[in-house]
């Protein structure tokens, strides 16, 4: 049993929230550079140039890449041999509180969905916990903007809809997201599980580095096919026309019920902000 001081969590979240909001992760930056090279239209080229210059500027000046510094998401994978000294959830909230205040990040969270009073410190973060083997804690952080979150969709398809039905639904979601989700977008897909697990899978798919494909060749091929079809839409950077509508499609799957085929599509913008640490 390892004794684990929750202050480590506060410090890690504080670091990752600052870093991910100011420095575009290398996988996303490389994807945008490739996108710029593939465009032949002036509007699309100039938009991608601006997006890359913005990333350089934000990193250089320690400014947020985007003013929507997101809802803080924290994925915790806790080794079974960990004993926390203190409350890990409150430690995470404290890390978010400190990072958003110290780094002049925007506080975008309201306390109640209908009465809408800002909490003033960007808490609460949404926290997802999973138990794993060992005595380490893996922490993944994402700053999730809502321009793209608002464009996400979920469907309870019939088993008879099959792979074609799944493809149609994913393409429909990407099409309807159009310019609103700040393309080139990243598309996270969850297939299987049940209603809520499919949505969680879609979100977890967004945490995967953009250059990593699903380890099952069947789903890796589906990811490639969908990415090509989304890019054939011509939506392009910021939706004003061009080749790069999406940087990646990432699919995660789970077993499901004989009567069901849940599919969730969670969408991220080109400022896909994620970071990971092992403690």
């Amino acid at each position: 049993m390892r004794e684990f001081d929750v202050q480590l969590l506060t410090d890690a979240v504080r670091r990752m929230a600052a870093q991910s909001n100011q420095i575009l992760s290398p996988d996303v930056y490389a994807g945008l550079v490739r996108a710029r090279e593939s465009e032949d239209g002036l509007t699309a080229q100039s938009i991608l140039d601006d997006i890359l210059r913005n990333a350089d500027l934000a990193a250089g000046k320690a400014m947020p890449i985007c003013q929507d510094t997101g809802m803080a998401l924290v994925f915790l994978q806790v080794g079974r041999d960990i004993h926390f000294q203190g409350d890990p959830y409150e430690a995470i909230q404290e890390g978010v509180r400190q990072a958003y205040e110290e780094n002049y990040l925007r506080k975008s969270i309201v306390k109640d969905p209908l009465r809408r009073i800002n909490t003033g410190d960007n808490t609460p973060a949404m926290i997802y916990t999973e138990l794993i083997a060992g005595n380490q804690v893996k922490v993944s952080f994402a700053a999730k903007g809502f321009g793209s979150e608002n464009m996400s969709q979920l469907a309870m398809l019939k088993p008879a809809d099959g792979v074609e039905g799944v493809k149609r639904f994913i393409l429909k979601a990407a099409r309807e997201a159009g310019p609103n989700a700040c393309p080139p977008i990243v598309i996270g897909v969850g297939i299987g599980g049940n209603f809520d697990k499919s949505a969680l899978l879609a979100k977890q798919a967004l945490m995967r580095p953009l250059d990593v494909r699903n380890c099952d060749p069947f789903y890796a091929a589906l990811e490639d096919e969908l990415l090509e079809q989304v890019n054939n839409s011509g939506i392009g950077p910021m939706g004003l026309g061009g080749r790069t509508s999406a940087l990646a499609v990432s699919i995660e799957v789970l077993p499901t019920h004989i009567a069901g085929l849940p599919v969730a599509v969670n969408i991220n913008c080109h400022a896909t902000r994620h970071a990971e640490e092992v403690l």
Partner: peptide, 13 residues
């Protein structure tokens, strides 16, 4: 007018 979404640091300049 469309401004480039997610280019907040560039536009602030």
């Amino acid at each position: 007018f469309a401004a480039v979404g997610g280019a907040g640091a560039l536009l602030a300049e």
